[in-house]
């Protein structure tokens, strides 16, 4: 029993150290990629297209709907307690600080994280990685780094769009139900939106992007021989990315607001 526990612990520590080593290898390769970007530039562009551009419609729809629901509920309830102006801090807290980065991360995990793990897993099973190595191409530089940068950058940009649509786009939807003076709404939103909120949102997006991309790539490379390993690793990648994103969010909130 004790031996099993010890082996389990040692294996997990080894896996953690291997993961951290893998992460630093990607960071190291990223600097090389920035210097010699021409090699994987097209891969990066396609990654941003698939992860960022193609997720924009989902993200914008969720942001507008979420913002409109918050405004409609808030405008209906808060004035009854004499706290009508509280709707603006609430909207900013939910859209910018908390749910914006988190919802974007969840959508990227579901859409792109799974795709990356599956694609790299297929490359491993089909011995394409070995072919890259045989032809002198570093698989980390050509496969991992463009995906790492693409996912991280896409998540950051999608978070900007989420904020834009959530704070500004939702106003126009709200007009159909609760007409609010545009000047008053935008003045109060911009007055209550602080630089701290935006910086916090950017930090979360970057951290979530790094987590999703590294975890997805890592589990993609964990596939060894069989194609049946691909869905197993994909499920592991999704679960791990969800858990790490939530833990990271809690940690950032703890550090940032205490």
């Amino acid at each position: 029993m004790l031996g099993k526990l010890g082996r389990w612990l040692i294996n997990h520590i080894k896996a953690l150290l291997y993961g951290l080593g893998f992460f630093f290898q990607i960071i190291k390769a990223t600097f090389g990629f920035i210097k010699n970007g021409r090699v994987g530039r097209k891969v990066l562009t396609m990654q941003i297209l698939f992860t960022g551009v193609q997720a924009l419609n989902n993200i914008s729809l969720i942001a507008v709907a979420l913002g409109a629901v918050i405004i409609i509920q808030g405008v209906g309830i808060l004035p009854q307690f004499g706290q009508g102006d509280l709707i603006y801090p609430i909207l900013i807290t939910i859209i910018t600080r908390e749910l914006g980065p988190m919802l974007c991360a969840f959508i990227i995990i579901a859409r792109s994280g799974t795709a990356i793990t599956t694609e790299i897993g297929s490359n491993v099973v089909n011995h394409e990685i070995e072919a890259y190595i045989a032809t002198g191409v570093n698989p980390l530089s050509y496969i991992a780094v463009p995906r790492f940068i693409g996912v991280t950058l896409s998540l950051l940009l999608l978070n900007f769009y989420f904020n834009f649509f959530g704070l500004i786009g939702s106003y126009f939807i709200t007009q159909f139900i609760y007409p609010i003076q545009a000047a008053e709404y935008f003045h109060k939103i911009l007055y209550n939106l602080h630089l701290d909120d935006i910086v916090s949102s950017i930090i979360k997006s970057l951290v979530f992007g790094v987590i999703i991309s590294v975890v997805s790539i890592y589990y993609g490379f964990q596939v060894e021989q069989s194609s049946t390993e691909i869905p197993q690793m994909t499920i592991k990648a999704v679960g791990t990315a969800f858990v790490l994103c939530i833990l990271a969010d809690a940690l950032i909130v703890l550090i940032y607001y205490t």
Partner: peptide, 8 residues
């Protein structure tokens, strides 16, 4: 995206 964040 950059324009939207800069505008805000």
């Amino acid at each position: 995206a950059m324009m939207s964040i800069v505008f805000i």
